[in-house]
Nucleic acid binder design. Structure first.
Lengths: 308, 308
DNA sequence: CCTATTGTTTTTAATCTTTCTATACAAAAA
DNA sequence: TTTTTGTATAGAAAGATTAAAAACAATAGG
């Protein structure tokens, strides 16, 4: 077999729904119109119509497309629907690395991993090619992939770049006019931080998404595709490591909230020096936490490795 | 057919050379030793030995591997040897875009391009996946690739990031101790700049590699894999555009040399403010040149497009 | 005669299969 | 006992196959 007919199947089912909205004896629109509605090519539409003909749902000859009977549930084609989008794959992969603390230098088995993440090997290959740009994995000279991994060096260099980009964002931010949308966003974030600070004893788990939103907002003022690209990987990696390192979570998050609030306050005063200082301090803490979580990971016994 | 037996063929030929260094009647080393020498797996060695047996060059039974006759040229297997390494592919691709000024939004035909660059489609696919990280190309929702291209926005954002990274490098550089290797490098670069300035009227083409070396040296003081990664793409793209834009090349290069020398001088004085100012000025010029070269490209008539 | 629609062909890309290559393990010889 | 070889198995590269899209040509209806 070659590629799946998933696309045909889902179009067929969508078309059944469409037919169900009409009466027996009604005519269906032109192939081109159907293609537009179902968001597929005309080729698929014609295949679907042929199938509907075979099923006795419509009579189709030339331009005549008459509904013979309304479709029933049994007409629908089963579909696997286990399509995994790219960002989910990204998450799966990072989680896999962190979950099993896969050491640097591990050869990656494309076929096995693809099965594990239930994606076609092809998709994983492509994902790895993209990831190779971040230096997390590399192609081996003669075939196969190598996990270069989350080493301490990796974390340090990642944090360095993060600091560089974020301090740049902070400097840009304090120069922005009062009318800019970021100030409302910051107000909202400030309220959310105060709100979470009040109930930190029980809800400290809610910090991670708030942290992500805060840093995302800061960096959003730098409209640069390369920076955004990096920002995305950075936040992903920080997010996952933080989630993994449960040590002192409540205390750590409380401290981070305080640091965020200091930064927000300095930003609102348009005090560049204070803002940069606050951001630097917070980034240093983050870096320390990231390095700390690496050590925690390293303590996971190696027999917790993924099954061969 | 499936994959090529290129690896076997080249090992076979290498083994013929090896046999040629012995006498008739000599014995060949163990399979493991041969594998090590030929830098292939034992499987290949055994396939090669079988082939040598069939060709009547050696007698092979168990551990006995006796040379029956010395190999002749006709024994050698032909091989295509048209392997294109990744960086060559990179160059080919960028050159193709610039050469034909392929507009943003062009769908890329993997099979056709792969043939054009004489690489397996598979290799191009992988290359594009990596390139997608830089935002130069993107995957289309349902199959295929799209060239997002060198738009003015792209150039501006690229220049912005370049400035951010390079100013950071400059700030780091002036703090470095006298013993650091960079100071000798800078001295050498300064001499080369003066040298080229003296013969700029005839040799202005020599500036491009010198420019590359200079920026590379500046950024080398930031030991960060992510920064280096970006630096690589940035210099590639700048380099190619500069090469393409021949307008006012002599004048432009002379001015750039002066800017470089101003920066080098400020760096050697450890004058951070002056160095940052000089670097900023030079980066602005670069950005303007890059944007200018985009306009030049846009003037190439569209019938100069690559063959359908 | 012109436009909208359908019939047909060609092109392109996803996935599967085959084949080559590497590696692990068992058996045998030195 | 160590080294070397025989055998089995796994993993990846690249062709082969098929689904889907797009281009083109033909025809029906106004």
């Amino acid at each position: 077999m070659a590629r799946t007919d998933e696309r045909f199947r889902s179009a067929f089912n969508d078309c059944l729904t469409l037919v169900g909205q009409h009466q027996v004896g009604d005519s269906l629109p032109a192939e081109t119109a159907l293609a537009e509605q179902l968001k597929v090519s005309r080729t698929i539409v014609r295949t679907v119509l042929t199938a509907l003909c075979d099923a006795g749902v419509v009579h189709w000859q030339g331009r005549e497309k008459t509904i013979l009977r309304l479709p029933v549930k049994a007409d629908r084609l089963p579909l696997r629907g286990d399509y995994v989008p790219r960002d989910v794959l990204e998450r799966c992969f990072l989680e896999w690395i962190l979950r099993f603390d896969v050491p640097a230098g591990t050869p990656l088995n494309v076929a096995k991993l693809a099965k594990e993440f239930s994606v076609p090997p092809h998709a994983l290959q492509e994902f790895l090619s993209g990831l190779a740009q971040t230096g997390l994995v590399a192609r081996r000279p003669r075939g196969g992939w190598l996990l270069l991994g989350f080493t301490a060096d990796y974390a340090i260099e990642l944090s360095e770049l993060r600091a560089l980009l974020e301090l740049n964002a902070v400097r840009k931010l304090v120069q922005l006019p009062k009318a800019h949308a970021i100030w409302d966003e910051l107000d909202a974030l400030e309220r959310q931080h105060h709100d979470l600070a009040a109930r930190i004893d029980t809800d400290f788990h809610d910090f991670s998404p708030l942290d992500g939103a805060f840093h995302m907002a800061l960096n959003s003022v730098v409209e640069n595709r390369f920076v955004s690209q990096f920002q995305k990987s950075i936040s992903l990696i920080f997010h996952y490591h933080y989630q993994w390192d449960k040590k002192m979570e409540r205390h750590r998050n409380e401290a981070a909230i305080a640091e965020h609030l200091t930064l927000i306050e300095a930003l609102k005063r348009r005090d560049e020096a204070a803002a940069v200082a606050a951001a630097s301090a917070h980034l240093l803490t983050s870096k320390a936490t990231l390095l700390g979580s690496l050590r925690v990971n390293a303590l996971i016994p190696s027999d917790a490795m993924p099954p061969e």
